[in-house]
Structure formats: C-alpha cells, structure tokens
Measured scan of single mutants.
Amino acid sequence: MDEEYDVIVLGTGLTECILSGIMSVNGKKVLHMDRNPYYGGESSSITPLEELYKRFQLLEGPPESMGRGRDWNVDLIPKFLMANGQLVKMLLYTEVTRYLDFKVVEGSFVYKGGKIYKVPSTETEALASNLMGMFEKRRFRKFLVFVANFDENDPKTFEGVDPQTTSMRDVYRKFDLGQDVIDFTGHALALYRTDDYLDQPCLETVNRIKLYSESLARYGKSPYLYPLYGLGELPQGFARLSAIYGGTYMLNKPVDDIIMENGKVVGVKSEGEVARCKQLICDPSYIPDRVRKAGQVIRIICILSHPIKNTNDANSCQIIIPQNQVNRKSDIYVCMISYAHNVAAQGKYIAIASTTVETTDPEKEVEPALELLEPIDQKFVAISDLYEPIDDGCESQVFCSCSYDATTHFETTCNDIKDIYKRMAGTAFDFENMKRKQNDVFGEAEQ
C-alpha cells in the first residue's frame, strides 16, 4: 500500500465507483478503499435476508415463511433508472452494461384523492384515464405537443414562451391547466419533490418532461429500469471497470487518518501504512468535519406477500404521492420490486416508501404510502441524515459526494458526479471521457 497514487477513493457507493471508473479509464492511477467488507456503502443491496434483520437490530431473524435468505437482495436506497437518463448513458458509454441485466418497471402510478391511478404512457391511455376530465385532456394534450416540439435552440418552437424568464406557473396558465393536472405534471412527469420549481424559469421543467417522455418511448410500460439482483450491482459494475483499467481495490480496510500538508491532501493512513495521493474522493462518512447536515430522509422497507392493490398485479412499480394531495411540502414515493428481479424469495415483494422528513414524527409522514401497502409482513425503518460538503474541495483537493436524496431516480446523483468531475479535472464533464479506450493495455477482449 505504500505507494504513490493520482487519486484515492474512500467508500464504494455508486458515486465513488463511477468516479473511480472514469478516473481509471482516463489513465489515472487509482486506489479504492472501503472500511466495509462489502461494496456499495449507503447504496448497497443487503443479502442474505438475515443480514438485513441484523442491521435493523431485529434479533429474532426472519421467519421460515420468508423463504431462503440467499434469495434476497434488499436495497437500502430505493431508486430506478430513467431509461433515457444520465446513468444509463454512463453505463452505455463505459460498457458496464455487459455486467448487468435490466428489466423495465411495469408501471408508474400517481395518488389522487386517496386512490392510485396509472400515469398514462400512451395517448390512448391518456384519453381513457380517469385522472382528468374530457376538456382537461384536450388542454393537457396541447401542452404535451408543445413540450414535444420544444427545442431550446429554435425560438420558432417557443410559442411566445421565453425559456429563460417565463416561469412554469405562467406556462401552466397559458395552457389553462387545472391544479390536479399541474400536480401530476410537476411531480409524476417532471419528478420534482416540491413546488419550488413553479416560480423558476420553465426551461428545466420542460426538459425534465421531455426526458420522461423519451424514456417512456424506449420501452413503453414506464420510463424506469431496474437491474436484476438489486442496485448493489451498479457500484460493483463500475468497480470492475476501474479494476480492468488498473485500479487497486481494498475492502474491509480501516481508514485511520487523512493526511494533510499546508491545507492540501497528501495521503491516507491505514493500519500503520500511508498511501500518498494528489486528490481524494470520499463519501460524507469519511470526513464528518468537512460536511454539513442538509436534512433527513425516511425510508421504510416493507416486505409483502402480495402485489400492491390497484396496480394490475404489477411485479414492479412506482407510486408518487404528490405533496398537495397530503398537505406536505415534499412528495412521498413508493418503489416496489419483487422475486421477478431476483431480489426476493418466490411470491414475495419489496416495497420501499420514502420521503424528505418535515416533522418530528417521520413515520407518521409516510402513513399515506403504508396504507396502500397493507397487509405488511415486516417493516424496517431507516431515518438517514443527508450531508453535503461545506466547500468545493478545490483548495484541499478533498472531494466529497452528497448523500443520496429522496428522489426515486439517479439524475441528482449523476449531477453530483459531473460536478465533482468538473472540480477535479478543471474541465466540464463530457460523456466521451467515459469511453473505454480501444486496444489499450487494460481493455477487455470482446465477449
């Protein structure tokens, strides 16, 4: 370990593993360490099931009705991949897709007046949907046509809207959309967690709705994908990429100290040895004095023996409960997957309800979601602090990732990755940087 590296990475969460992969592909010498004996950090999948019970201090362990412990891979952080989103792009560019198998999530649902409705995925579904009345549908269709044709580089498509100054509230007004449709559009399509976006320039919202539609167009059922064997497969896929390009991995490796000289990182000390480096990437748990708390998320993992009611017996789905429907500031989400994804025993389902904490009784906040899941065989409640770095790391060369937020997709995580890359490399992130180099010394032969 007593060696000189360009970059040392602490923690094998998804953000850290993707950055480690990119740095290795770009010719950097990388050492990647984790104090845990497993990959994934906060974003790991726990197996066998006995391990999950232990982690949540349920000492009696799983009953026999849960089947074989080894058949379970339970995500600690519930997220899906947008089919046309940035993480899929990263997987394709790096060819990490060859280590993973994905399934399309069967449906996306939205909560309205105590019931759940399928988010329409085709024009026919939209016309048949009970989510809105006849005239509302016509106006909504006009709005969707506007979004589909919108091109930020072609003012002819703006229809009198200025993407940089017109607020989204004004765009909704222009198409005369009612409150329910606005809730549905902002939260189930643009996937905002709160209503803060309404008074911001509309460009980002329009682009988010386009991303949803384009992702949906790829597979038809929903815009989301999920990897077989759980999300823990993602960091491992990128760790393989890093290793192929010469990255060194050490799990179960305690970090005793991060060594600084004149305010700059110069190395990491572990078990009496020092590895030197020019730059350091880590998750917040490794540098508690360089991060601040930015809120909390509650996630309740529920094991069920039945599909969720009114989802047409889907073996995977997402449910969004827009905040307006339950008098909150932030949406509540449910991600459900099952034995069909090799993450649970035969006939079992895993539904994870999550939201940003707003009160001193977080469990009560998630109740509307839990009511949709009854009866629940077993619950595991996790309340996590969200951390963000206190500075950009440019001076110390210590670059810290943000905690995983309450969103049900990876777009915010990818933004964090691109942002850290830019601060480390001094140049904007470009997907081309992730391409495997042809015929290089570490390149794998085609399968």
Rank of each mutant, 00 (worst) to 15 (best):
L372W: 04
P368R: 02
V206F: 11
L59R: 06
C317Y: 03
R328T: 00
E50D: 10
K309C: 12
E95Q: 09
G11E: 01
D183H: 11
A190K: 15
R138H: 13
V265N: 04
K89N: 07
R240E: 15
L19M: 00
L203P: 10
D75Y: 00
R208L: 06
T47S: 13
E95D: 07
I209T: 07
E159L: 11
I383T: 10
I258V: 11
D419F: 15
E16H: 03
N207E: 15
Y111E: 13
A369E: 09
P284I: 14
T407V: 15
L370P: 01
E363R: 09
Y172E: 11
F143C: 03
T205D: 15
K142E: 07
N26K: 05
D416Y: 03
K348R: 11
A217P: 04
V171Y: 14
L59E: 02
M168N: 14
K253S: 01
D162V: 07
T194P: 05
L280D: 02
K118A: 05
P223S: 11
Q236W: 09
V266D: 15
I420L: 13
Y229H: 06
I301N: 13
S305C: 01
T15G: 03
R35Q: 08
E388G: 07
V206L: 10
Y249H: 11
I350L: 10
V110P: 15
V266L: 10
E159Y: 07
N433S: 11
T122A: 09
L372Q: 02
G61W: 06
V326F: 11
Q296N: 08
S121Y: 00
N252R: 11
S270W: 01
L144M: 10
N324T: 07
A275G: 07
K418S: 04
E50Q: 15
I300R: 00
K54N: 08
F102L: 08
I383L: 08
K29E: 04
T185R: 00
S108W: 09
D2Y: 04
I77F: 03
V145L: 12
A126P: 08
A351R: 01
N342T: 11
N439G: 02
T407P: 01
R141S: 05
K278M: 06
E51W: 14
D392F: 12
N324K: 00
E446A: 12
V96T: 09
V381M: 09
G272L: 07
V25Q: 11
G186C: 03
V7S: 13
E214Y: 09
Q279K: 06
E42D: 08
M260L: 14
Y421K: 13
K422Y: 15
S384F: 11
M66Q: 08
K28T: 10
N415S: 10
S338C: 13
L92E: 04
V326M: 06
D199H: 12
F442S: 12
N252T: 03
P307T: 08
M66V: 08
E136V: 03
I390S: 02
S20Q: 01
K210Y: 12
T359M: 04
S316G: 01
T311I: 08
K89L: 15
E125D: 07
R208S: 00
E444V: 06
M66H: 09
C202Y: 09
Q438E: 15
D6F: 02
L280P: 02
D151A: 06
R68S: 07
K348W: 14
I259T: 06
N262P: 11
M250T: 04
F56M: 00
Y38D: 00
I301M: 08
G443R: 10
G230F: 00
P389I: 15
D440Y: 04
D392Y: 04
E371W: 07
M260I: 10
Y387N: 02
I8T: 03
G295E: 12
S338D: 14
E444Q: 00
S215H: 15
L304P: 02
K348I: 14
G232Y: 12
M134A: 05
D416C: 10
E358K: 05
S129F: 03
G21S: 08
L225S: 02
E4Y: 13
K418G: 13
E271Q: 13
T413S: 03
E432G: 10
Q378K: 00
T412Q: 00
K364L: 03
S285T: 07
Q164W: 08
D196G: 09
E367L: 12
I287N: 13
C414Y: 05
T355A: 10
C317Q: 05
A345T: 08
Y39R: 08
F80C: 08
F410W: 00
E60L: 11
L59V: 04
P288W: 12
F140C: 01
F431V: 05
I244P: 14
I8G: 01
G247M: 03
F109W: 04
K103C: 12
I376V: 10
A188D: 00
P254Q: 14
P375S: 05
